[in-house]
Design a protein around this nucleic acid. Sequence first.
DNA 1: CTAGGACTTGAACTAATGGTGAAGTCAATG
DNA 2: CATTGACTTCACCATTAGTTCAAGTCCTAG
Lengths: 115, 115
Amino acid sequence: MGTLTVGEVARDSGVSGSAVRFYERQGLITAARTGGNQRRFDADAACRIRVARVAQRVGLTVNEIRDLLAALPPDPQLADWQGLHDRLTAEAERRIRDLHAALDDIGSGRRLCDL
Amino acid sequence: MGTLTVGEVARDSGVSGSAVRFYERQGLITAARTGGNQRRFDADAACRIRVARVAQRVGLTVNEIRDLLAALPPDPQLADWQGLHDRLTAEAERRIRDLHAALDDIGSGRRLCDL
DNA sequence: CTAGGACTTGAACTAATGGTGAAGTCAATG
DNA sequence: CATTGACTTCACCATTAGTTCAAGTCCTAG
């Protein structure tokens, strides 16, 4: 139904109010509006934001996180969160593989430079 | 002594001429000047740029790469390049550890969110 | 010696990233 | 009904890594 204000979601998720509004603009979270045009969020908003913060640590941009969270239906079930978890894990592992590939290039037979 | 022009270094390193000038401005490479004020680079310039590109893949910013390359003396020996290699490797591994830590947080007992 | 391609500078511009701040409006309480 | 804190929008900020432009200079091959 949407009962939480920007400030409450900010507190619950640990980000600033301006960040909450930013995330809504970017489509990471959605809000209903009061008669006076104020945002009202569902309980899962803070939750989505916490996921978004983890995703940022993994290296995803806000745009990529929007796409990731788009897979999450309204009123998500455990399996939905699990799916997100799996995607994030896969992404982190992909990035780890990329770094290993860079390491391989660095350490491969040919030197960084042949002086 | 410095015999290579911007264009030659660009060709040898695989970046654009404007990027070569940018890297010099940022202190990743240094250049001598002709009487007519044109840049002349040593043979290791392209080499440093190739190192810089690998460092970018590892996730270093140009500023960080400047600091990294600052450790490289003029006319570097094999051991100097080896030192760079080690530092880059350490940095990549640090980033891999950070990703693993994020993975641990994702997968740890507490769910992404407790719905 | 001259033509023209490669070079010079500095500033403006691009494009993405992740927000913040100012000025003004709303809403709940005493 | 007035205060005060939370809310609104939109413009703006700072960083990152360059690119582009104009107007002019250099240098090398013929």
